[in-house]
Write a protein that binds this DNA or RNA. Structure first.
Lengths: 155, 155
DNA sequence: GTACGACTTAAAGTTGGCTTTAAGGCAAGC
DNA sequence: GCTTGCCTTAAAGCCAACTTTAAGTCGTAC
């Protein structure tokens, strides 16, 4: 089997070469061998990258993916690694889903119940009913459930 | 009613002064009057800010909030503005919720079905079953449903 | 007059996951 | 030996929503 260039690998997995270089840079991929300066890969790298992509589809960050690859004793089977990481991620996604539900509830409530004419009238009502409540931190799926505070549900 | 300084306003609504300056800078708040260079506010600004915060809790971006404030004919009542913007946002949240469900499905599937020992063995299985599938774009609640492609559900 | 505290501005930094840019290297074909 | 095309690197840029920093202004208290 001939060795692959970076763009051949990239094409196979649907990534840009720059992404693969980036993964090497941040330690998700080991340093590739070089042929007169250029990276050469055998085809096991595409399996690695398929794993990376699947893990991303599951909501894992690159940091978590690095832990999947390198954060366990060498003998730990991958199936066990998945189970360990999935547990936390499922909990995070549950939290995220609840936050989305809270937003949906707020949106439906304001559509149904608000009859305000003026902005400040509406704002006064909100301020009175929920003065000083937490702001919604921008939710990111890759860093979820950290600085989130719950919206309170009055209107 | 005396005028408020920026930090008094900030304290009332639970924001940092820098956030309020930022809102002025990006046009969410009108330019405040100054007293020897310093911003002075009347208390209607806290209603404005309550509105901003509530809208953020609902998942609106600052850009969308600016549209809520300035993107309609002046006579359009706020209740109608909410309805207009809520429609799109609810649809986005629905999409987002589905993406989360897809992730949960993938996570549960790998926890239940994967018995792989080695990383590459696992990656080969994923690659074979779903070669070239789309990568999950990082999901942000504030700009959802844009470049997302669906994860395919094999394994 | 000077120290203090609260304010001002513009500009840079933060986060993650990359992409883009700039400047250059190396091999093959003509 | 020159062009073409693909590769290399380090550094900067992108996105949103701010925060932080640096350098300076202002009024009040001592």
């Amino acid at each position: 089997m001939p060795l692959l260039t970076i763009s051949e690998v990239a094409k196979q997995v649907g990534l840009k070469p720059s992404a693969i270089r980036y993964y090497e840079q941040v330690g998700i991929l080991p340093r590739a061998q070089r042929a007169s300066g250029q990276r050469r890969y055998d085809n096991t790298v595409v399996y690695r990258l398929a794993l990376v992509q699947r893990a991303q589809q599951m909501g894992f960050t690159l940091e978590e993916i690095r832990r999947l690859f390198f954060g366990f004793r060498k003998a730990t089977p991958i199936s066990e690694r998945w189970k360990k990481l999935s547990e936390r991620k499922l909990a995070e996604l549950e939290t995220l889903a609840e936050q989305i539900k809270a937003m949906q509830t707020l949106l439906r409530a304001i559509s149904e119940k608000c009859n305000c004419e003026a902005l400040d009238q509406c704002g006064r009502g909100i301020f009175r009913s929920s003065c000083g409540d937490a702001k919604a931190a921008p939710l990111r799926l890759d860093q979820p459930a950290r600085k989130l505070k719950q919206p309170n549900s009055t209107l």
